[in-house]
Design a protein around this nucleic acid. Structure first.
Lengths: 249, 249
DNA sequence: GTATCGGCTGACGCCGCGTCAACCGCAAGG
DNA sequence: CCTTGCGGTTGACGCGGCGTCAGCCGATAC
């Protein structure tokens, strides 16, 4: 015989019987014919087609794309080139993601405070869409461009800038200044500008108070900011609230 | 009020209403209560929880993992570290995949012949399982190790080795030798050893004849092998068939 | 006869929602 | 008063590539 049953094909190629039936169901690989009792029988052309299917599948192509290629409706080289581009894009995405995850781990372990601008650091295309609705279109577009243009040195400088502002505020606090006092508010203005620069837009009153709330209510933020000094998170929040109410639209 | 409707939360956070309902349905984030007409109402704790959810989601964590973390049943740092490891593994996989795809494109463009040992080159963990059933356990394990240990120089040398064998066989063919002649069979023995080395196991009769069939029946293989000389693919196949019948178990 | 093997055909499940469809409550405008 | 429209609700299907049942059939071995 030059036909084979499902079990034989399974041993020859390593695919499961379920997969063969699936390929039949979606029209990717039909058996040559049916034997007794509706049993599938595969001939040599089917085996060869299966080999090519498996080859392309190992390269990560989707089954419908493979079908198009095998039907001749799609140029194989062209499809592979496009696929390679997709892989490259995915690699970039993963690289950024890995960096962001690593950053987060460092911050959790008690490194530098988790400043809100890191929310932008790992933004990829998909989340740009999300963030765009969240903070507004222009904000994200420009923040994205800003982060893209930053050198690693500049990125590493971010926590330091916040550290300076935080230290100044804490100094005023220990000196007895209330959150609403003019010198404090002046430093908060710096803070606001700093956030604005990294968000690359002016946080409005709502956004800024929301951020302030996060500082005290989110345990992660509160912990890192309270490390500046006991009660600093609450102080910072009060100062930001006051600033938002008086200065922001 | 310190509660917000769905629409408000949508504007604040950028998630869709559908997503909020989904999170409710899977028990990840329930609204604080229901207002008039069953409308969802979210309070400040829910918003904060949502912020944390979105933060972790941006890092690529699965929703059930996020739920476990927020319930306190899973250590966040630990989960992130494991996640980072998964990302790294996926990056490796993609890197190998990209290399394999690039190889395939080169071969399609008429580069060096597509030798069967390249079937192993891009093997990752998932496909090792597939290949293990296909060619047997030990075969794959050792082939894998072999490819891992190869330097890029060695890898680039693979096509050259096959080229030498092919050239020798073609020389015998143009000299008038039949595929079953002893000198031809001697060179085929080299070919078999070469394949065996790259598969890191002796191809049996069935496997070797299957490979031979591929050389003539798969247009891609036939084309590249016929480039050695017109009709060479058929000649090589006949010689391999004869070898398999006489020498292989 | 019956137990077993090998095959078959549905159908559900995975994951994270997008996208209908069908319905309800409330306010503004005719 | 009715209509229209907005903003919300609850299902349910779909996506990709099968794994994994459940339930049935035909041929073979004991």
């Amino acid at each position: 015989m030059d036909t084979w049953t499902t079990a034989h094909v399974v041993k020859l190629t390593g695919v499961t019987a379920r997969t063969l039936r699936h390929y039949d169901a979606i029209g990717l690989l039909a058996p040559a014919g049916a034997g007794h009792g509706g049993q599938r029988r595969y001939g040599r052309p089917e085996l060869l087609r299966l080999q090519q299917i498996l080859l392309l599948k190992r390269l990560g192509l989707r089954l419908d794309t493979i079908a198009q290629i095998l039907e001749g409706g799609l140029d194989e080289t062209q499809a592979l080139r496009r696929h390679a581009a997709e892989i490259a894009a995915e690699q970039e995405r993963l690289a950024r993601l890995a960096a962001t995850v690593a950053d987060t781990i460092r911050q959790l372990e008690g490194g530098t405070p988790m400043a809100p601008e890191t929310w932008f650091t790992g933004l990829d295309d998909r989340h740009r869409e999300e963030a765009r609705r969240r903070w507004g279109q222009a904000v994200v577009e420009r923040a994205w461009a800003v982060v893209q243009d930053m050198t690693p040195e500049q990125r590493r400088a971010i926590p330091a800038e916040f550290d300076r502002v935080n230290a100044a505020l804490d100094a005023l606090r220990t000196a007895g200044h209330a959150p609403g006092d003019a010198p404090v508010q002046a430093v908060v203005a710096d803070h606001h500008r700093l956030v604005a620069r990294h968000w690359d837009s002016e946080p409005g009153r709502e956004a800024y108070t929301g951020l302030a709330a996060l500082y005290t209510d989110d345990p992660r933020f509160r912990e890192t900011y309270d490390r500046v000094g006991a009660g600093f998170a609450a102080y910072l929040r009060a100062a930001m609230d006051a600033y938002a109410q008086e200065r922001l639209p």
